[in-house]
Amino acid sequence: MSGGYIVVEVNKCLACKTCEIECAIAHSEFKDKKDAVFKLHSLQHRVFVEKMKEFSIPLQCRHCEDAPCVKICPTKAIEKREIEGPVVINESLCIGCKRCLLICPFGVISINHQSRASIKCDLCIGRLKEGLSPACVSGCPTKAIKYISIDEYNKLKRRRVIKEYYERVGKK
């Protein structure tokens, strides 16, 4: 399980909300989509597709390195175990005080309808251990969401910049 995080290419998102459905099913007890589809109203997704004018973007937990939610949690229910690893909520420790909801700058923490504990994206930690990519990533039909390590992502960008530079300037 290598470190990575979720990268969004805004111009590719169609706001189809497939990621929301995939996320809700991945975090439910139903593993089969056919069973889950009739109970969709009771399931909760942890990724939110927001639309603004012509732009849409799926938002989920940024898994901050120095996360405000980890700092403010009074029962230490939220923890980050490693650099470039996910921030995870231990639902049994959570008392539902909603302080994490208030302090999160991205508004991606919600409340579990049944247990009243806070829930949020856990980077599909179970799927990562099995060697799969997170549910929203594998479900996206336009590949707008990608799971990639930071170094890899930066390298791709830099290589594109260098390529464009030499295409314009040319090697003397």
Binding site: V8, R62, C64, E65, A67, P68, P105, K157
Partner: peptide, 14 residues
């Protein structure tokens, strides 16, 4: 806070 939004936004990957 290490949210990595700047890493996403930077066009140069630096």
């Amino acid at each position: 806070i290490g949210c990595k939004y700047c890493i996403l936004a930077c066009p140069f990957g630096v």
